[in-house]
Design a protein around this nucleic acid. Structure first.
Length: 806
RNA sequence: GCCGCUGUGGCGGAACUGGCAGACGCCCGGGACUUAAAAUCCCGUGAUGUGUAAACAUCGUACCGGUUCGAUCCCGGUCAGCGGCACCA
């Protein structure tokens, strides 16, 4: 009989579904395991060959855990709000809901085709009102707790999407999604105060089992720096406050710089004598996008304020104040003290404007360039700090400043609050109404969800308002507080909203009373293992940690972190090593692979392709190797059935036990490629030295997480009881892992000469005698004295020799 | 500029804690089976050199140097590539 993968895969998918093999039990006595993958955005293109990489990986883990006796929650859902769907709907004059429904149906069919052990009774869809009701509920709680606020501010505006973007969505000055220019625009926006959680988001990383590069990237993004705020008196009478990480260099501060947007400038308008020049500079800066501002970074520009000067608190010197766009309004206090001797930017600026440069940390030549390598060193030209180390100087100056009431220690973060409104249709409506009398009022919980109205057109408006703003009947409402006339908020939430808590809903997806029931959350607790892409590290992963911490604070969830463990997979590249994309025409469709080779081969290949954590190029020829491997197993099993009278003996017991251990360990360490390689080695061994039925059944159990369909079919063919996927995971016997004989490397002066076979754990002398008896070694050692012998047990022997009589 | 990662055959990639570099797979070559092809099975396959051959020698993990009996692995330096952040004071 031939390996008819198409029929076999259909057959077992049907059986698994019918028996509900993969349904998770809430409140079971078994130990629980919650494995999570990032739910897909159901795009119109359907599943891409990149999707199966993380899915198969976690499916393997989930299947192994079930065999190990765990009650496993391995869910799937759809992150279905978002712009591509909306744009497609506009173009084809369909309702986004219809487009979404169609795309989800396609994804579901494709995912089922790959044989994933998802619990299909727990599917969530972020666009389902039963789901987004709770997204809105969380927003209301954030609002009630002062973590959602509306403010007029310069925002990132995508010129093509006609929509506001979060900082995290702007990449190199362009829109992360469409690549169009992003400009700054003053708009009134809903914001979430993620900065209030900056410290906890950074500190709590320490206790998590995340791969290091995820932690590093999040730390960099949050960007903590410790320093001090220092107040400078000015001749105008006002205090100019700055943030610095180097208060120790205060004696070297020879001028100040304010951002062009600094609010003191308005106040000083009347006393600045060159206000026309200042105003011109401010306007020019405002016209530039953030991107242009950084592009211009090469050449420093600025204007010196005439009529106001600052006073350096330690030297008492009057120093000039400049405005320059190299100082950001949004970081620190929007003003700096410039220490040109020890900061590249300040140095460059000082040179251009001929400002004094003072060395305050010994070690460089500040006339040549700024001496920035000064985290350690000795203070000079610094009055009462002279002779101190940088470290001591920092302490002393902060003490001195706080005594005088001129400064305090201060921690700053790069992280900004999260711009949470979008001017688009296909998102969750923000559940607030605006009343002239009462201001912003939350929609009562009992009235959730606030449903998306059916609009005629989803086109973006020319005014930059949400399409919902044109639905006057929907917008007009009554104030829940005073009953007077009020208007609904017409902006919607960003795509990241629904994905910030979806893993909680999986625990209890049909609950109508709460986003997750108390019993469900106390049983499942949190995600044990979450695998996802690096591209979400500073977006979804950070946002969802933030929401989870908030939900913890208000008592909804029992843990302050949502995910105990985070791993990440590399991208699947096109055949030539380039990124797979429609425009390059190198996209591989999983349907084609499944049709030609079967889902098991695709699953196996996508895991065998290379290091899971690194990018790997697709190879259409290498896929065949995995198909061949399955064919070889198929043939072995067929032979075992027809030769059932004969009893083969397994010669290599150690190999079997080593393979069990290796496959198990490799799965835990996301080394799927080497796990498969060791299964291949095992099969090769069976071909060389024979095997019996029991050996094959053991092989099938190890294979089943990787290639579950063929494993079931062959399990049945060999007369196995029950389902292969429900067998206990094989255990290994440590004592049987050691081989009776070892092949040792024999080196002379560190160079390999030959090998010898000795019984395991032979003592050093026995090894040496064996080596000395070897014909080849006799030849080599002729006329040589052995000076030293090094033996590494069961591994190698190294003889250090020198010629005789020398 | 700063932070992080990576560099191994024709290709994808292995190598535990410093101990036989190249597992496993692809490609390629040879053989068996076949009328033939495909499929399958068996053998070979880092480079160079010597040898009819079995075999042997030398070189080899980006490059230069160091530590060590022994280095893909540790240390110092250089080069190249990838990713993140980027005027964050």
């Amino acid at each position: 009989m031939k390996y008819d993968f198409t029929a076999i895969e259909k057959k077992w998918q049907g059986i698994w579904e019918e028996r509900k093999c993969y349904a998770a039990q809430n409140g079971s006595d078994k130990p629980k395991f919650y494995g999570l993958i990032e739910f897909p955005y159901p795009s119109g293109e359907g599943l891409h060959v990149g999707h199966p990489r993380p899915y198969t990986a976690m499916d393997i883990v989930a299947r192994k855990r079930r065999m190990q006796g765990y009650n496993v929650l391995f869910p799937i859902g759809y992150d279905a709000f978002g712009l591509p769907t909306e744009n497609y709907a506009i173009k084809h004059k369909m309702h986004p809901r219809e487009v979404t429904k169609r795309n989800i149906a396609r994804f579901t069919q494709q995912l089922k085709m790959l044989g994933y052990s998802f619990d299909w009774d727990r599917v969530v869809d972020t666009t389902d009102p039963e789901y987004y009701k709770w997204t809105q509920w969380i927003f209301l709680k954030l609002f009630e707790n002062g973590l959602a606020y509306k403010t007029k501010m310069p925002v990132n505006w995508c010129t093509s999407c006609k929509c506001v973007l979060a900082n995290e969505e702007v990449v190199n000055g362009v829109c992360e999604r469409c690549g169009s220019d992003v400009v700054r625009k003053e708009k009134s926006q809903w914001m979430l105060k993620i900065t209030a959680y900056a410290e906890r988001l950074i500190n709590d990383l320490d206790g998590l089992d995340y791969i290091e590069r995820v932690k590093t990237q999040q730390r960099n993004w949050i960007g903590r720096s410790t320093g001090a705020e220092v107040d400078f008196a000015t001749t105008a009478g006002d205090t100019l406050r700055v943030f610095t990480t180097r208060p120790d260099t205060l004696f070297g501060a020879t001028y100040m710089v304010m951002s062009p947007e600094h609010e003191l400038l308005k106040k000083w308008e009347s006393i600045i004598s060159n206000r026309a020049e200042v105003a011109e500079y401010q306007e020019a800066a405002a016209r530039k996008s953030d991107f242009e501002r950084t592009e211009m970074a090469k050449e420093k520009t600025g204007v010196c304020l005439e009529g106001v000067r600052a006073i350096n608190p330690v030297t008492g010197n009057e120093i000039p104040i400049f405005i320059s766009d190299y100082v950001l309004a949004t970081y620190g206090t929007g003003a700096i003290m410039a220490v040109p001797g020890h900061d590249d930017r300040d140095w460059e600026f000082a040179k251009k404007f001929s400002l004094p440069i003072i060395e305050v940390v010994k070690g460089g030549n500040v006339e040549e360039c700024a001496f920035t390598d000064c985290q350690t060193g000795i203070m000079v030209n610094s009055g009462f700090l002279n002779g101190l180390s940088v470290e001591d100087a920092k302490k002393k100056i902060v003490e001195w400043l706080s005594e005088k009431g001129l400064g305090v220690q201060k921690v700053n973060y790069k992280l900004r609050d999260w711009v949470f409104s979008r001017q688009r249709y296909w998102g969750e409506p923000i559940p607030l109404v605006y009343c002239e009398k009462c201001g912003w009022v939350p929609v009562p919980e009992s009235e959730l969800p606030v449903l998306l109205p059916d609009v005629e057109s989803y086109e973006t408006t020319d005014t930059g308002e949400s399409p919902l703003s044109l639905m006057e009947d929907w917008v007009r409402t009554v104030c829940p507080h005073c009953g007077g006339p009020a208007k609904r908020e017409t902006d919607t939430m960003p795509q990241w909203a629904g994905s910030s808590w979806y893993f909680l809903r999986y625990m209890d997806p049909h609950n109508k009373e709460a986003l997750v029931g108390k019993d469900a959350i106390s049983y499942w607790n949190r995600v044990d293992w979450y695998n996802g892409g690096m591209e979400h590290t500073t977006l979804h992963l950070l946002y969802s940690r933030f929401w989870h911490k908030f939900l913890y604070d208000i008592g909804v969830v029992p843990t302050s972190e949502p995910y105990a463990k985070r791993t990440s997979h590399g991208m699947i590249l096109g055949e030539g090593g380039e990124k797979m994309s429609k425009s390059r025409g190198n996209v591989v469709n999983p349907n084609d692979i499944v049709e030609e080779f079967g889902a098991d081969t695709l699953r196996l290949y996508i895991m065998f392709i290379g290091d899971f954590e690194k990018a790997a190029p697709w190879s259409s020829t290498a896929v065949k190797g995995c198909k061949r491997f399955l064919d070889r197993i198929w043939n072995l099993c067929e032979k075992a059935v027809s030769d059932s009278g004969k009893d083969f003996t397994t010669k290599n017991e150690a190999l079997i036990h080593n393979t069990i251990k290796k496959v198990g360990d490799d799965i835990e360490n996301v080394k799927f490629n080497t796990a498969i390689a060791s299964l291949m080695t095992m099969v090769n061994e069976f071909y060389d030295n024979g095997c019996n039925k029991a050996d094959l059944m053991l092989l099938l159990k190890l294979l089943s997480p990787f290639a579950p369909h063929i494993a079931e079919e062959l399990w049945e063919m060999l007369g196995g009881e029950g389902l292969c996927c429900e067998q206990p995971w094989p255990s290994f016997d440590e004592s049987k892992m050691v081989e009776s004989e070892k092949t040792l490397a024999v080196q002379v002066n560190g160079k390999l000469k030959t090998t010898v076979v000795v019984p395991s754990d032979s003592d050093d002398n026995a090894v040496l005698q064996k080596v000395l008896a070897d014909e080849k070694m006799k030849r080599i050692l002729e006329n040589m004295d052995i000076v030293k012998t090094i033996v590494v047990k069961n591994k190698l022997i190294n003889l250090i020799v020198k010629p005789q009589n020398s």
